[in-house]
Amino acid sequence: MGRGEIWPRLAPTSPSSSPISTSPIGSKAAKKLGPTTPEDEEESLFRSLFRRGKDLSTLQTVEAVKDVSFIARHGESVGIIGRNGSGKSTLLRAIAGLIPPTRGRVWVSGEPSLLGVNAVLMSKLSGARNVFIGCQAQGLTKAEIRERFQDIVDFSGIGEAINRPMHTYSSGQAARLRFAISVATTPDILMIDEALATGDADFKERSAAKVAEIREQASTVFLVSHSNATVRDLCSRVLWMEKGVLLADGPTEEVVAAYEASLPKRKPPAKPAQKAPAPTTPDPKTQPPKTPDPKTPGPKTPAAPPPAPPPAPEQQAPPGPAAAPIG
């Protein structure tokens, strides 16, 4: 059906640097300030006077994702791994078209559908209402939804609670319902942000089966997870993000192994470095060229450290949107 390839790609618009930057709260405001050069200072002071709340003096741009470029194909299941704040969720949202990138471009075939632990539907409304809203937003008609309603509820395992407002749900319940809603249609591109980690064992099994089914229908699945086991189970390919940079891109086993190898060794010193990259640094100087060969996990591990130490002393910046998944 005209679907050649699914091919999200964040391509540089300029040859040198092309970060996708997002700010914790208002990327537009942050963007305007951008790098604070001396002549900006007065304006930024002026602006900060008109900014409300916590942000009074600190408007920061977090470059959550920098210069990432890849191609994904139909039927592929791509895992995205990396530490907290490495830009996984921001990347996912950018390729879902939900957070427009500040630079770079994404091309897709079909409609991406993202579900994340943090994706809130209408929390004041009941689960049932949310099923209708979510499914209709995905283009189903009311009749179709009524037909599938019971299936959706059964799949989510919510039971009676479906008629309660969503803000009364536990995070696991909410995540399960969101997952059930987003797989009610077979999305062309399914993006899962940590959702599977929140379910109980029984639900995990069901969702794994569902993901497999979706892949069989030649859709593409993206999965952000901190559970290497989940990634191994579900993904054929893995992107390893580190500080907003794509460190490795290759077959699951190799990349995950390299990632795991980097963990125990690096953990103590990497802790402070886990923070998002420094704000207002337009040049991704620390960014190594993407490791060209994902097949050699051995040499890759040494490739990881260089970016880690240098930014470590840089100032705190809230991991912001990039740190969405916790756990």
Partner: peptide, 23 residues
């Protein structure tokens, strides 16, 4: 992994596969 394409090459490849630009 192929090296990152230039923006032009990426655009033309996307066009050849009838992909839609997001955003």
């Amino acid at each position: 992994r192929p090296p990152a394409l230039s923006p032009e090459a990426a655009a033309s490849l996307a066009k050849a596969n009838r992909l839609v630009e997001l955003g």
